[in-house]
Design a protein around this nucleic acid. Structure first.
Lengths: 232, 232
DNA sequence: AAACCCAAAAGTGTCGACACTATTTTATTT
DNA sequence: AAATAAAATAGTGTCGACACTTTTGGGTTT
């Protein structure tokens, strides 16, 4: 029984409701709209999003798989609570995975992709000179750069782990702790070294430099946290 | 408000149906009971397991998150098809993650845990001498050893990624391709070297040895596949 | 007033039914 | 008979309802 009054068949965007719900919720959680550590009430959220509980539960299930919420049987789901310890854990995993990604990228990126990455990095350099202090673009730029290298690894397991699982958690930390680093110039330099290694197809060196880069970023975060604590 | 009459509070057997379903399906898929690459019919499976489709769908959702099945909107879910390329990808991720795990384990394992691991390894050595060729126990032993080191890293992100995501996929390959390695003696030696590094609390060396160990295992698998192809 | 118990309310887990989409089968045209 | 179109079938996506569990609130006892 096809309804011949609905001509919007043109949009095979049959993206499922659960998908959209998942995206919305993920964004809301990452950006702190739904407070970290808060309990998630299924009936309430279902009303709020005008959606049945069934679909909502499937979306929450995915959020759980991405470690954005924790669920206990018969008790419900809570948004994860961020901790300094967990952030360090994430940095350690990133160091391992992105180090490998850089190694593989040095082997597997196409010349085309590499030259695009060079262009991107040049733009970043200009932005840093022009607008000193505006950390917003830098953060985005940093993410872009890392993102491309991960893609360049051509390892789909790796890509999935980093882009689907870890990066969202990391973005959540950035939003909620508002980490504004003053090391954009330093980070830019490190990106440059790393890219040089990739251009030279030096996999070993690429991994080394990526790991140093991430450790450096980690130390920066550690410093911020120490300062924060000393201010209390 | 302690209830001194209900001591069985210790056993919260309220494990949800979806949980059990997920476990059953995961086992069935990993062990090949549900053929790799085959389509999953929700109504059929629901009848088979005497369960409603709703619960089944939640379980399938989790399987998807663990990359054991792939789902396309309105088309349904299929068990992932294993490929040589994907197996190599998994080895690369393992090398990165378990390398880091070994590094952290060298720093964070308790003396108690280390000595237990030494005991375990000694048992493995005896088993190898006693029953040459019985690769079953060796495989299990290898998994035990790696499992403990990952736990020893004390990094919950890392533990989750390896034990919940990757290891099941890896077990699936083992079941379906029946990889029986003839290098149990070699693997045992490598485990021993690695453990020595951990005993010495040499994190750098532990990571290096773990990575070599996994690469060695990877080369073994590559060899098996090449032989397989030359036999066709 | 604090601790305990019990009933009411709210929340989660599970189910069956309906709506819409994709596939297969049947019917029609050339 | 092959190709196309239409109808029937099967499958997935979404929903509302019921069952069971946990929490809440009020009433009783010490």
């Amino acid at each position: 029984m096809q309804n011949h009054i609905t001509p919007q068949k043109t949009a095979p965007l049959s993206i499922t409701l659960t998908d959209r719900l998942f995206d919305s919720l993920q964004r809301a959680i990452v950006e702190g709209e739904i407070a970290s550590g808060s309990k998630i009430s299924e009936p309430e959220l279902a009303r709020q999003y005008r959606v049945s509980r069934g679909s909502l539960r499937e979306a929450i299930g995915r959020l759980e798989a991405r470690k954005l919420v924790e669920r206990k049987p018969n008790l419900g789901a809570r948004v994860v609570t961020l901790s300094y310890e967990q952030l360090i854990e994430i940095f350690q995993v990133r160091e391992a995975l992105e180090g490998m990604a850089a190694r593989l990228a040095a082997q597997n990126m196409s010349d085309q992709e590499i030259s695009e990455l060079q262009t991107l990095l040049t733009e970043h350099g200009q932005q840093i000179e022009e607008q000193q202090g505006q950390a917003y673009f830098q953060k985005q730029g940093d993410l872009d750069f890392h993102y491309r290298i991960v893609q360049g690894s051509k390892n789909r397991q790796l890509i999935g782990l980093l882009c689907n699982d870890l990066y969202h958690l990391l973005r959540m930390y950035r939003y909620q702790f508002g980490m504004r680093s003053k090391r954009s110039q330093q980070a830019y330099n490190e990106h440059h070294f790393l890219l040089n290694a990739i251009v030279a197809r030096d996999a070993e060196m690429a991994e080394l430099l990526m790991r140093q880069h991430i450790r450096s970023s980690q130390r920066n975060v550690e410093g911020v946290f120490l300062n924060l604590n000393s201010e209390l």
